[in-house]
Every structure is written in C-alpha cells, then in structure tokens.
Design a protein around this nucleic acid. Structure first.
Length: 281
DNA sequence: TTGTGTTTTATTGCCTCC
DNA sequence: GGAGGCAATAAAACACAA
C-alpha cells in the first residue's frame, strides 16, 4: 500500500474542510468529532470500499484515485437494512462487527445509521401528517352531520310545540296554562341541554365522554393501516426498547411525533362514538 | 445529451449525557 | 471533556423527461 495517500473526497474539503495542513508539512485527516487521524492511519481507513477484498487491492488504489463518493453495494445496503430493522441504534461493538463484515469503516456504518434514522423520521412525520389529516376530516364530517341533525330536531320541536299550543287553544276550556307552557318549556329546556351542552362537550377534549366507549364503533385512529398498530420496523417502534431512546428530549416515544395530538384525537373519536350513541338512542 | 429533481453518502456544528 | 446523537447542509450519484 502506498503510504501517505489520503483517501478523501477532495470536493468535500472545499465545504467541509476535512483536511488540515500542518505547518510542518504534514497533513492529517480531520475526521468527525475533531478526531485527528494521522495520514498513515487515514490511508488505512480508506472509505468507500465496495468489498472487503478491495481493501487490499493495489490495482484498485491505483485506478480509483482520487476517491469519489461511492454508493454502497446492494448487498451492503441489504445487510445494513436488516441490522437497522433489528435495532436502529448502534452500540460500538456492533458497529465494529458490522463494519468488519461489510468491509466498511465503522464511521461509514455509523453515518449510514444516522442517515437511515433521519430518513425513517421523515417518513414517520409524513405518516403522522396523513393520519392527523384523515382524523380531522373524519371529525369534521361527523360534526357536520350532527349539526344538521341538530337543526332538524330543533325544527321538529318548534313544530310540535306549535301544534300543541293550537290544540290546547282549540279545545275550548283553557287548560291550565301553566301545564302546557311547562311542557313546552321542558322540551325546549331538554333540547337546549341536549344540543347546547352536549355540543360543547363534543367540542371539548372529550374527557367527559370518554368514560364510556363504544368499542364496536368505528375507530379511525386505530384502523388497520395506522402506524400505532402496524410495525414497519420492529426495531424502530415502541415494541422494541431501543426505539424509545431515539429522541433524547422525549418528544419521540417511538410511536408518533404528535403523541398528544393523536391521543386527543383518539379521545375525541371515542367521544364522537359516544355522542352518536347518545343522539340516536 | 442535457437539464432537473431526488436519493444517498458524508461533514459540520451544536447539544446532551456520563 | 469526550462520545454519540441530531439537524442542517453539501455534493456525488442516480433517475428521468424533453
């Protein structure tokens, strides 16, 4: 192996400055985390191996320099994906083993995992958005139908009240006014309670209505396609311990990036089911 | 072929944890 | 203070339409 050669992307040095030139003429590869590797060391840890055999392939060295950013082989990616599925974070030992197995630098394996986690998170945000949107649409549609039903029932009450009054007036002897007025008043009050107070309940977080849940009712949030039930990456979901630590600040519990929102939506959905039961019974 | 958008690999700087 | 994680970003590699 030719000593003193650096295997780095020269273009990276432009923006990243991963090359340091020392006053004594030596140059070192400045790796991430400011870990300074000697020139010799960096040449040993040459990036972009396509296979373990390439590591000691003189011809490869001569023909491929200067190194350019090289994609991993499908086999390497496959193994990395499998490893990621099992556990989306790398312990140092596992990283080293994986790197050895793949003929990559451990740093490359770490970078791959880092990028893979970022991709997974992006996808997850998209899924969460879709779920949130469909939940909102569903709730909106439900609200509209209930609102219409409310208006319809109100009109019905007014009509019946009118008929009742007409009947009482046509009966000759005026019945105890107190009674008919009381009856109409009662109905109005009941309707007011039903369509006023309950509507507020419906628009609240649903905490009041969630005590009773219609388990047979539609559970949009927990549909079969929902992220909460489907486990795309066993190692990334809440079912595996490793996932829970993806976000150190606790914003990501491995299930959703909007846990509170979905919880509220879920509760509201339950409230909606209860509401339906209440309205139609 | 070329222009353009997307994906993948890699770096940098900041933050947190031990 | 070092190690490792993440977000932001650069740039090469790739895909694809015109």
């Amino acid at each position: 192996m030719e000593s003193g050669r650096l295997f780095f992307d020269p273009t990276s040095a432009c923006h990243g400055g991963n090359m340091l030139f020392l006053g004594n003429g030596d140059s070192v590869f400045r790796g991430p985390r400011s870990s300074i590797m000697s020139m010799e060391e960096s040449s040993k840890r040459r990036p972009f191996f396509s296979s373990p055999e390439d590591l000691y392939d003189e011809e490869y060295y001569d023909e491929q320099l200067p190194e350019k950013k090289r994609r991993l082989t499908p086999e390497q990616v496959h193994l990395l994906e499998k490893s990621f599925e099992a556990e989306n974070k790398l312990e140092p030992e596992r990283k080293t083993q994986l790197a050895k197995k793949l003929g990559l630098q451990s740093r490359q394996v770490a970078v791959w995992f880092q990028n893979r986690r970022a991709r997974w998170k992006t996808k997850q945000l998209e899924r969460d958005y879709d779920l949130l949107k469909s939940t909102y649409d569903s709730l909106l549609a439900n609200f509209d139908s209930i609102h219409k039903e409310n208006e319809k029932l109100k009109a019905e009450v007014a009509s019946l009240t009118e008929k009742l009054q007409a009947k009482e007036e046509g009966a000759g002897a005026p019945p105890p006014a107190q009674k008919s007025e009381s009856l109409a008043g009662d109905m109005t009050e009941i309707m007011g309670l039903q369509f006023g107070v309950k509507a507020e309940d419906r628009l609240s977080t649903g905490s009041g209505g969630s005590a009773v849940v219609d388990e047979e009712g539609p559970q949009l949030v927990d549909s079969g396609d929902s992220y909460f039930q489907s486990v795309q990456y066993p190692g990334c979901m809440g079912t595996v311990d490793g996932v829970h630590s993806e976000e150190d600040d606790g914003s990501d519990d491995g299930r959703s990036y909007f846990p509170d929102v979905f919880a509220a939506a879920e509760q509201q959905q339950e409230g909606e089911n209860l509401e339906c039961w209440w309205v139609w019974s």
